[in-house]
């Protein structure tokens, strides 16, 4: 009987393997508890964030949070407008995607459509090494190597800026984008390529007119996941982008991202119960919601793509 491992249905033959001892009977429940821990974690995250966020909004109005353009909770003249932190996050993420999308997509197309199978199999995992380097190391690289290098090219670039950490973050995210879009491109049915070939299409034409459009939602899903990673990335931007919340779109000056702000407050001695303390949970809540929305969109796009291909 051929029964591929992936297709079996767990529990479908339960009667054949009835537990025979007391211990055996308990095992299933113990394992279920292990699996349920993950659900508890999610609930824990939401409750923790919610508790402090509610406390925060009892003291600061929604209007101030979303419409003020200054973020100065650590100064005596306190303003709680979130936009400077969002602008900082958007800037660094923009440069990260500006790096990761072309590099990741081109690598994916090359690996799937051009590279010999042997090279594809060897190169794909070796790209993953890039994603395994600790982010604090990337931060050091951005601050001490990339920034001085860019300062020679870009006039007026400050020691802390959004470009350098953005680019380095992009390098870190490239393997994620490359690997996921390669999965999508590779799974486009061969028959479509053959049809394009029969119509006289060159490899390039086939790739751009047939393969990429077919894999499009899968490719976009990989971009969105990469973007969500960039938004949540902490150490690179904390080290190299600065800690000055500023409502600007100028990437050459020091800014502060949402994540960097959380680190900044955590490093100080902020007592529990103060408004400064609850700000990091409010910012964390927003960060959690943004990445959650991005991840869910990516999830559904990927699902739609798989349904379309198969």
């Amino acid at each position: 009987m051929r029964n591929p491992a992936g297709k079996r249905e767990p529990g479908s033959q339960a009667d054949l393997r009835l537990p025979r001892s007391f211990v055996e009977r308990g095992i299933g429940s113990v394992l279920l508890v292990c699996a349920a821990v993950s659900v508890v974690v999610t609930i824990g995250i939401i409750l923790t964030l919610l508790k402090e966020t509610i406390g925060f909004f009892q003291r600061v109005s929604f209007k101030e949070f979303f419409f003020d353009t200054q973020w100065t909770p650590l100064f005596s003249n306190k303003h709680f407008g979130i936009w400077p932190l969002i602008a900082g996050t958007a800037l660094t993420s923009f440069f990260a995607m500006l790096t990761a999308i072309p590099l990741g997509l081109m690598s994916a197309v090359y690996l799937s459509e051009y590279a010999p199978e042997r090279i594809r199999k060897a190169l794909k995992p070796s790209l993953e090494v890039l994603a395994g380097i600790p982010t604090v190391v990337y931060g050091y690289f951005a601050l001490t190597f990339v920034t001085p290098l860019l300062q020679k090219v870009i006039p007026g670039l400050a020691g802390f800026n959004a470009i350098s950490p953005g680019i380095v973050m992009g390098i870190m995210i490239t393997p994620i984008v490359a690997s996921l879009s390669e999965d999508a491109i590779y799974s486009v049915p061969l028959s479509l390529r053959e049809a394009a070939l029969a119509l006289g299409g060159s490899r390039l034409r086939t790739t751009f007119r047939v393969v990429i459009p077919t894999a499009f939602s899968g490719i976009v899903a990989s971009f969105i996941l990469g973007m969500s990673r960039a938004i949540g990335e902490t150490m690179i931007v904390t080290i190299a982008a600065g800690q000055q919340p500023r409502f600007t779109l100028d990437p050459r000056v020091p800014i502060e991202t949402m994540t960097a702000y959380i680190v900044q407050v955590s490093l100080g001695d902020t007592p529990h119960g103060t408004i400064e303390y609850s700000t990091i949970f409010a910012v964390g809540m927003l960060l959690f919601l943004i990445t959650l929305v991005f991840n869910l969109i990516a999830h559904f796009m990927k699902k739609r793509f798989l349904r379309g291909v198969l």
Partner: peptide, 8 residues
């Protein structure tokens, strides 16, 4: 989920 959220 970003790792810093786990920190919170």
């Amino acid at each position: 989920v970003p790792s810093i959220i786990y920190g919170l």
